Amino acid sequence: MPQVVGREVGSTGYGLMGLTWRPQPPSEETSFKAMKTALSKGANFWNGGEFYGPPTHNSLHLLNSYFTKYPEDADKVVLCIKGGLKPGEMALDGGEANVRRSIDECLRVLDGKKTLDIFECARVDPETPVEITVRTIAACIKEGKVKGIGLSECSANTIRRAAKVHEIAVVEVEFSLWATEVLDNGIAKACAENRIPMVAYSPLGRGFLTGQIKSPADLPEGDFRKYSPRFQPDVFDENLKLVKELEKLASKKGCTPGQIAIAWVKAQSGKNGMPVIIPIPGASAEERVLENMVDVELSEGDMAEIDRILKNATVIGGRYPEAHAHILNGDSKEL
């Protein structure tokens, strides 16, 4: 099993974003059931965000409530929280003052119900040398506020620079059959070189690879995916061809396309020079959590078939809207 901040974690983790960051979040009862189920199935690496929801109801508030009700679960969970944005803004600030503010705010909301195992800035601040950001979090580790440092959506160069300053616990990236860029841009290689586990967010392609989204009309009003280039009406059907091919393979194996997608991500872990990879699918419904936690074995023939599917599939559109694209796989100015 993977090791993170000295703790053993399950081969599949759990993403909390959808529990608080959507137009109509699920009820606390529904969220708690999903969280409890994830933990019971071995998904004890949880990933949330200070900005996943409004300042009064984000991941941290939900976690406070959950661990108040289930205090016995607090020590079972390895918690990774993204922060580092300016208060009330989707703007980057990796400087010392704001990183400390963000960590202190996370701890304030958790209110002692759970430790902050890993803290990571959500994106790399191009105006602040990553060395300063990492040194600040490292100081907070010495002060007992945090246990480990994470990086998110960073370049291979950022990983190497950060690792020279302090041990990096995890690097969080988007990685799925729908987003394979880290295999070619040096990020996976840099993680492997430094023995850093790679946390794969959106392993289900923001739900697209489950086959549950048949058209743009299936997305609810206010859903951020409505603004994603890959979900736009003019490219949707072309992108759906990949899912239809996965559905054929899933039908032959007696599983779901989403299970194939997660299994493929896990099959890359530690193989052929790759780092350990921990996918963190998010789900708000208990039945979806149970589906995501089923381990599907992919044979050499299955992997060859998926390789064929990927070679023939053309994914159209960027991972994020153009306004956000410049901070993906980011690097900072030199120290």
Rank of each mutant, 00 (worst) to 15 (best):
M1W: 07
V9W: 05
G13S: 09
L19K: 00
P23I: 03
S27M: 05
T30F: 02
T30A: 15
T37H: 04
S40V: 09
A43E: 08
W46T: 00
G48C: 06
G53E: 00
P54W: 03
Y70M: 07
Y70F: 15
P71H: 07
D75G: 04
V77H: 06
V78G: 04
C80H: 09
K82C: 08
K82R: 11
G83I: 07
D93Y: 08
D93V: 12
G94Y: 05
G94D: 06
V99A: 13
R101T: 15
E105D: 14
C106K: 12
L110C: 10
K114W: 07
D125L: 14
P129A: 12
I132A: 13
I132V: 15
R135D: 15
I137P: 11
A139M: 10
C140F: 12
I141T: 08
K142E: 15
E143L: 13
S152H: 09
T158G: 04
T158V: 07
V165I: 15
V165W: 11
V171Y: 01
V173G: 01
E174W: 01
K189G: 11
R195H: 15
P197W: 02
M198E: 06
R206V: 00
R206M: 03
K214E: 11
S215F: 13
P216S: 02
A217G: 08
L219S: 03
P220T: 01
E221G: 14
G222Q: 06
P233L: 05
L242F: 03
V243I: 02
K244R: 11
E247S: 07
T256E: 09
T256I: 05
P257I: 06
G258Q: 02
G258C: 01
A261E: 02
A263W: 05
V265I: 03
V265P: 01
N272G: 04
I280L: 01
A285E: 15
M293K: 04
D295E: 15
E297W: 11
D302F: 08
D307E: 15
L310S: 03
K311M: 10
G317P: 12
P321E: 08
S332G: 09
K333M: 10
E334Y: 08
